[in-house]
């Protein structure tokens, strides 16, 4: 996936450039935080989490997905976050906090959280969790549900469309293919994008890609 790097060479700084979701993370400038648009929007004076934000069913919903079965065993020890390579360098990505929000039922906050897309799926958290929570899989489930709501970061859209068009995740330029054969490698095997498109139609994947977001 790092092939997209040249494209992004210019913009190194922002951590969440791709997403359109509103953020309440601590990384916002102080002036924004003091304004507290959250409570304005909900027409309430207090900064507390409001009753309508809780969806106690959310944790069960996650548990019903493959890989989410053990979610409710989490006792918030922080092992996942402490050795997470991303969390060590990010100001906002905390797998434990995402799980905490899910357990509390803050469905909207989890699914619209931009940090959701920062998991590198290295599975260190999953391997080390003392309560067998498959943390990386739980985050994948969050993402899959967010996609159903129309949130897909551009990069995943591109990868998805490429796969359906070419069979593989990248469009390989002609020049490279020529170069390949010059180095003595056999030509790349033929691919069958038609079969993939058929499958994508069947499963609704195509719809997801073309849908809003």
């Amino acid at each position: 996936m790092s092939e997209s790097k040249p494209r992004q060479k210019e913009k190194v700084e922002p951590e969440r450039e791709f997403t359109k979701a509103t953020s309440t993370s601590s990384e916002e400038p102080l002036s924004d935080m003091t304004k507290d648009k959250t409570s304005e929007r909900r027409g309430s004076e207090t900064a507390s989490i409001k009753a309508h934000e809780f969806d106690p069913h959310f944790k069960h919903e996650i548990s019903n997905f493959h890989g989410g079965e053990k979610l409710k065993q989490c006792f918030q020890c922080g092992t996942c976050t402490s050795d997470c390579p991303i969390a060590r360098f990010s100001d906002s990505y905390r797998p434990r906090s995402l799980i905490r929000m899910a357990l509390l039922g803050l469905k909207d906050r989890v699914l619209s959280s931009d940090t959701l897309w920062l998991c590198a799926a290295c599975f260190t958290c999953t391997d080390r969790c003392p309560q067998d929570v498959e943390v990386a899989s739980v985050i994948r489930i969050f993402r899959n549900i967010a996609v159903k709501r129309g949130v897909i970061p551009q990069i995943f859209k591109e990868l998805g469309s490429n796969i359906l068009e070419n069979g593989i995740a990248y469009k390989i330029p002609e020049l490279r293919l020529k170069k390949r054969e010059q180095t003595g490698l056999p030509p790349l095997p033929k691919r069958n994008p038609k079969a993939l498109e058929k499958l994508a139609k069947e499963t609704g994947f195509l719809k997801k890609l073309k849908g809003s977001g």
């Binding site: 799926a121 994948r140 993402r143 796969i163 069979g167 095997p189 993939l196 499963t203 997801k208």
Partner: peptide, 25 residues
């Protein structure tokens, strides 16, 4: 290996089931 396709991993974040199908194919 003719006709092979992407293993599926890149789209696991958006659609787990489609990932399974690509891998299975």
């Amino acid at each position: 290996m003719p006709e092979y396709n992407c293993c599926g991993l890149p789209i696991d974040p958006i659609d787990h089931e489609m990932m399974l199908i690509l891998a299975a194919r």
